[in-house]
Write a protein that binds this DNA or RNA. Structure first.
Lengths: 175, 175
DNA sequence: TTTATCTGTTTACAAGTGTAGACCCTTTGC
DNA sequence: GCAAAGGGTCTACACTTGTAAACAGATAAA
């Protein structure tokens, strides 16, 4: 035997109560990546296929995590379907099961899903203000904006209250 | 007595283990707003001062929550410092303790904090693509971008691996 | 005044998350 | 061949989040 997955069979189909927003991109329909887990995902995305040991080494250089903690997180990520573990010569090699971009986009979109529609624009502006973007991205964004402008509405109503429930008292748009 | 806070003294200073990222904006230094909690916060932000009963009515029109659930969430939000409860004639009136924009910005910035610096630009582009912005916001953003362009770097390195640890194997920028 | 109702406070409980020790098997060094 | 080391899996445990019932005090209705 040389490359057969001998250890870990993963994929536990356990029914869960909480109805988290189902993942948008084609990939795994499971829970989201938690803050701690992001750290590990980034290492894997950036390194390509990488063995546990190396992940531990890299992770410990940024976080005060015990080896155990990292192993647990890796297992969870695998169960959730974000990582794929392949056993080779009695060691596990991890690979990302979802593209980094998709994961990022999903996370961002999900966050924006619970923001007031009326104010999403400001939130985006805030991001552009605080985050550094490279020139090429700015160019892309400028193009995109120019396009968007054509069909953009003049105003967007606040959708924080159920339909017709604001009765002119909306502290935002007075709807 | 007419407007003294008779019920609920709130503010429980319990020490907690997990070190969540401390809130950036001047406001409360506590845990973040959870998805379910956002729903309620939006109602309060939009309605200004509002009594429990009304929040319950509004909330139940969007989510299948029991009265009890909503009350629990409100209490938690108050404890976390996102809402302020004032007792008047034996009823609690809630007010937002943090501006909506700050909360949104904090949430967005926090999310972006665990994304690869190199790819934050794409994530923002994705947002602009998927979210609808009104014309005026687009204009603002365009101005902002024009400014930003002046000092924007040509490239941004991937910072997913600890410094100097990528050894030319970074699957992204080959750093 | 007696009771039903409103509303706030307590308690509950399962699942998720942060964090990590314990255990177990295999490979390797002596 | 036996002990140490390496690496995978189990178990643990406190805290958070989603959800809600139970309980208590006050007030309004009968």
């Amino acid at each position: 035997m040389t490359a057969e997955p001998t250890i870990a069979e993963s994929a536990t189909t356990k029914p869960h109560t909480h109805d988290r927003a189902p993942n948008a991109s084609g990939a795994p329909t499971s829970d989201a990546i938690t803050p701690s887990e992001w750290e590990l995902m980034r290492i894997v995305w950036t390194s390509g296929e990488i063995p546990t040991r190396d992940i531990i080494a890299l992770a410990q250089r940024k976080r005060n995590w015990s080896e155990s903690t990292i192993k647990t997180l890796l297992t969870r990520l695998t169960k959730k379907g974000f990582l794929t573990a392949t056993a080779r010569s009695r060691k596990l090699f991890y690979t990302a099961a979802v593209p980094e971009i998709s994961a990022m986009d999903d996370a961002a979109n999900e966050l924006f899903d619970h923001l007031c529609s009326m104010k999403k624009g400001s939130a985006i502006i805030n991001l552009v203000q605080h985050q550094t973007m490279k020139k090429s991205d700015i160019y892309l964004l400028q193009e995109l904006l120019a396009q968007k402008l054509a069909t953009a509405p003049d105003t967007i109503a606040c959708d924080c209250l159920p339909d017709g429930m604001s009765g002119g008292n909306c502290a935002n748009c007075g709807c």
